[in-house]
Write a protein that binds this DNA or RNA. Structure first.
Lengths: 242, 242
DNA sequence: CGTCGGGTTGATAACTTTCAAATTTCGTGG
DNA sequence: CCACGAAATTTGAAAGTTATCAACCCGACG
């Protein structure tokens, strides 16, 4: 396996993967699965022992409240590892649904643990990825609590850009973003109507445009300042290999 | 070591700990440290290889934004494990500060990994605890996005109660809570003034009272309904031991 | 005493939601 | 290629929630 896989590409940015690592990694991609857009891959409360490596397409973790409100907890893009917690717990504590059509490799708990024991470096890498996910969640929490809608939106879009650039699916000028404004609203914890207004603000301000399934940055650097975006939480200098 | 340690007590609620497990666990408590109230135990961006097991007192993870706003990401109470991520990454991505005077056992990365290899069951237990922390963070995220201030406050207080009951430091009628209204505000992402008003609402409604460093539940069950609180995310039936 | 860190309350401003309606986009079948 | 309906986007107006500003109270403490 080469770096064609977004997952391998992501891991290799912070851990040097040997030929053997790549082979083991390749084995994990054996059970290829396809999902249509808008389908649940995993449901809250359901026993599910499989995890996935996302090869193409986007998915999200979400929670439905009793009052009907929905909150998207995390967006996952190609190269991300899904459902690590559902391997650890008896049941998944969140639902995962596809945002686009998706290709993913199903990873059985047993295979994952075997892979870990045969290449500890891979285990470290996956653990690193999981910790990075947690760091992103913490950053979202901060945004929800202390940033207004516009800053929050800008920050989220910049984070997406950074993640996609890492897996070779975006640049500082443009990336494909299949999210609807409703989904954006559920990520940011605001109403879809307000998302629309905020997008207009940012567009009028000449910083970014969200249209036709694409985000275009008219002024990336100014947006970074506006959103107070600091890449550090996504880009530590690699984990300690201990 | 018996179940005197809140940490052991917490772990034992979902994994049966053998005599050997308890011995290893006891060894981790060797380096006892004390911190005064209001001191940073760890700082954002600082290289810090130690983690802590919290024996007594409360601490919080927090982030300071450039605009001066502060967001508390997580509150940790006795029995919680601190700074697991700072062991994994070169630097800590958040600051940890003490809310009260604190007693904690410093755990060096090396000792922790040695303990893990000698008793895999302990490793599973700590991993479970970390995943539970992540689940709590996800739940907070949902609250920030989709619950109003009053529900959010009620939900947070109920979560605290559940966690403290687990380590023997609270009941369904009352627990000691050293937080100020300012700190509560920084946890919930609202202003301190509004915290005060919301507390009054809940008090007038006859559900709970926050006063003199104690939370008193006048009507625990009604508060649970009001907050739409579901204990499930804190209390899975134990992890799969694989 | 006098100060200082909480806590409490009122009045006003800011931000965001909700409701309603018009417009555009897009996939599908005729 | 066009028509049609569903989904998504866009905008205005009114209502609701929360922040901010400003006072005042209170108890701990030097």
């Amino acid at each position: 396996m080469s770096l064609d896989s977004p997952f391998a590409r992501k891991l290799s940015t912070f851990v040097t993967l040997s030929g053997n690592d790549l082979t083991v990694l390749s084995d994990l991609h054996r059970r290829r699965r396809r999902f249509l857009s808008g389908r649940d891959m995993m449901s809250q409360g359901e026993a599910n022992q499989a995890a996935y490596i996302l090869a193409s397409g986007w998915v999200c973790y979400y929670v439905l409240l009793r009052n009907g409100a929905k909150q998207i907890v995390e967006i996952q893009v190609p190269g991300d590892f899904l459902g690590l917690r559902s391997v650890l717990f008896r049941t998944s504590d969140q639902s995962i649904t596809t945002i686009t059509e998706v290709e993913a490799s199903e990873v059985l708990a047993r295979d994952l643990l075997d892979a870990f024991s045969s290449t500890p470096r891979l285990a470290t890498a996956v653990l690193w990825a999981a910790s990075r996910d947690q760091a992103m969640m913490a950053e979202h929490l901060v945004g929800m609590g202390r940033r207004d809608a516009a800053q929050r939106l800008a920050h989220f879009i910049l984070e997406l850009a950074a993640r996609l650039i890492l897996v070779g699916q975006g640049s500082k000028s443009r990336f494909a973003c299949p999210l609807t404004q409703y989904q954006l609203a559920d990520v940011l914890g605001i109403s879809a109507v307000h998302v629309n207004r905020v997008l207009r603000e940012l567009r009028v301000a000449g910083m970014m445009t969200f249209r036709d399934g694409h985000v275009t940055f008219e002024d990336f650097d100014r947006l970074v300042v506006y959103a107070d975006f600091d890449i550090a939480y996504l880009d530590h200098g690699g984990p300690l290999l201990r």
